[in-house]
Every structure is written in C-alpha cells, then in structure tokens.
C-alpha cells in the first residue's frame, strides 16, 4: 500500500467522490412515480381526437385539480411500450397488435378502454394494382413499422391471397404516416402506403390514387383501431386517478359524438386543418369514436397462428381491466 503515490490517492478520492455524488442523484431521480401524477402517451392522427378534446376542454384537469397531467406525444408504438416498461408512462394509446406483442412478452398491462375505429387501408397510385395480388416483388410498401396494426392487417390479407402471411414482409419500408404520404405522392420508390386518417383521405383526394385494400376486408369485419392501455402499477396504485381518467375519456368521446360541429372547430386548431375538412373526416363512414373494444380475439388468433406471438389468453380478464365495453 505504501507504494501509492500522491496522485494515485487523489485519483481514488476523486473517483469515490464522483460515485457517491452520482448515486445520490439516482435516488432523487427514481422518485417519479408519485400518486399525484398521470403520464399519458399518444401518437399523431385523428384517431386520437378524443384526447385532444380532453386537453383542450381541460376535462381531466377539472376532475383531478391536484394532479399533474403530463401528455407525451410519441413517434411510434414501440417508444410508448418502452416508456411503459421503464415506468415513464402510465397510460398509452396504441392499436391492438402492439398491445398483444407486449402482453405476450410478459408486460404487466391490460386494456382500459377503446378509443376509436378508423377507415384504414392500403393506397396506391399505380393503375395496374387493384389487389395485393398485383404487387410485384419490386413494389415497396410503406407503413409505420413491422408489428403495427397496418402490418398485421396486410399480413392477414396476404394470408388470404397467397396462403403466406409473411409474403410481403421483406418489401416493407418503415415510415411515419406523414413521411409515407410524401413518399407515395412523390410516386418514386413507394408503390403503396398502408395508412389511416387524415393521411388516407388526403392521399385519396389525389387523382389516380385508389384504395387496394381496406382494414375491414383484411380482417373480415370491423374492429377497434386504437385502445388505451394502463400498466398494472398505475391501475393498482392510483386507482382513483385511473377512474377519473376513464370517466374523462368517455366524456370526451361522448362530446365528439354529440357535438361534432364544436368538436371539429376545436380539432381544426389542434391539427391545423380547415374546420370543414375535420368535420368531414370525423363524421366519415367507418370513423367511430367509442369506448368499445372489438376484434381482440381475431387479432390474437391470427397472430398466434402466424407466430407473431406465442401465447393467447384463456379468459378476458387476462387482457382487460374491469368494466371494459367489450364486443367479440
């Protein structure tokens, strides 16, 4: 030990000092899951309109004046899921397939409510493409990401068309909806885009752009597009906040359905679109804002059959919190 030079000793003291200080910082940072906080993650698009109404009309704030409400807008479902694993998000909004993937991998979360059904589908500008059977191996398809509802619906359609759900998997290009729309409008690399409102409407407004496949055709029936998912920790530890959130969500959904005109003018500001356009979108055929959850079993069966997930639920309590409005 006597061999330690003065510099060595200074270094050791410095290192210990830094470690102790940083550990101190860790304990401070970990203390984020207080009861008077709710962190909600959403994505961009008209499917999330009730959440914009909730924010704009301060529906949740009125019910929870003492609670700090944190809204996070995230670029894709994987980010929301990772946020919920690391306990940065309490309630996340996403489609059914990404929820099932997380549930299958052991995430402790369940569906709290439905949010919306939307007309989603595959759009192309190419005259020759009228069904997915017309897609050649050179045609590339833009969608948000593998494992997204768009990808699963495309796989469902390709199982029906080619008896091979993975047939188109290596022709996918991962793009957020706005980028995918621009790429399709450029008519260069992307032949088709699997998308949702408002992008699907905007694309179809262009001459020659047509729909190859609808979500309903792929699935064989209509289904819930976006659901709200809550972690077990949040559901159990902050049950009052959870209840208040659900009540607010349902109030916002009812508001859009009862007052579409007023809702459209609020949403026009939020989405930076003309009011008439928003009104047309939110009252379009196939657009439904409802707390009902529909199509869960069909997605589970398909994804299990094609190895996207390895477990399926035996009874609904495994995937739904209490009092969820469920339809088979």
């Amino acid at each position: 030990m006597e061999k330690l030079t003065k510099i060595h000793r200074i270094c050791i003291v410095l290192i210990i000092f830094v470690i102790v200080l940083s550990l101190n910082g860790c304990t401070l940072n970990n203390d984020t899951s207080q009861n008077n906080e709710i962190r909600i993650a959403e994505q961009y698009g008209l499917a999330y309109a009730p959440l914009q109404i909730m924010k704009n009309k301060e529906i949740l704030k009125k019910r929870l004046p003492q609670t700090q409400i944190i809204w996070k807008q995230m670029g894709n479902t994987a980010a929301i899921r990772e946020g919920m694993i690391s306990n940065e998000v309490d309630i996340g909004f996403m489609a059914i397939p990404p929820f099932l993937i997380g549930w299958d991998k052991g995430m402790d979360w369940k569906i709290a409510s439905g949010l919306s059904s939307m007309p989603i589908g595959l759009i192309t500008y190419k005259d020759g493409i009228n069904s997915i059977k017309d897609l050649t191996t050179n045609d590339r398809i833009a969608l948000p990401q593998p494992g997204s509802i768009q990808h699963i619906l495309l796989s469902m359609a390709s199982e029906k068309a080619f008896s091979d759900s993975h047939k188109l998997d290596n022709q996918l290009v991962t793009m957020a909806h706005p980028d995918g729309m621009n790429a399709l409008l450029a008519k260069k690399d992307i032949s088709a885009h699997f998308t949702s409102p408002p992008y699907i409407f905007k694309e179809l407004d262009n001459e020659g752009f047509h729909q190859v496949l609808t979500g309903e055709e792929a699935m064989g029936k209509d289904f819930t597009f976006i659901i709200g998912v809550a972690t077990k920790e949040f559901h159990d530890m902050s049950s009052e906040t959870y209840e208040a959130f659900l009540d607010s969500l349902h109030e916002a959904i009812d508001f859009i359905n009862d007052h579409p005109q007023e809702a459209a003018s609020i949403l026009a500001k939020e989405y930076d679109l003309p009011k008439e356009e928003v009104l047309r979108y939110i009252t379009a055929d196939g657009t439904k804002y409802t707390s009902k959850v529909k199509g869960l079993e069909d997605f589970t069966d398909f994804m299990k059959r094609n190895n996207y997930i390895s477990n399926s639920f035996q009874n609904l309590e495994e995937v739904l919190w209490e009092d969820v409005n469920y339809e088979k």
Partner: peptide
C-alpha cells in the same frame, strides 16, 4: 429494428 418492434 424488427427485434425491437416485436419486443424480442
């Protein structure tokens, strides 16, 4: 990326 989105 595929591993990420399928949570593998």
């Amino acid at each position: 990326f595929k591993k990420r989105v399928f949570m593998d």
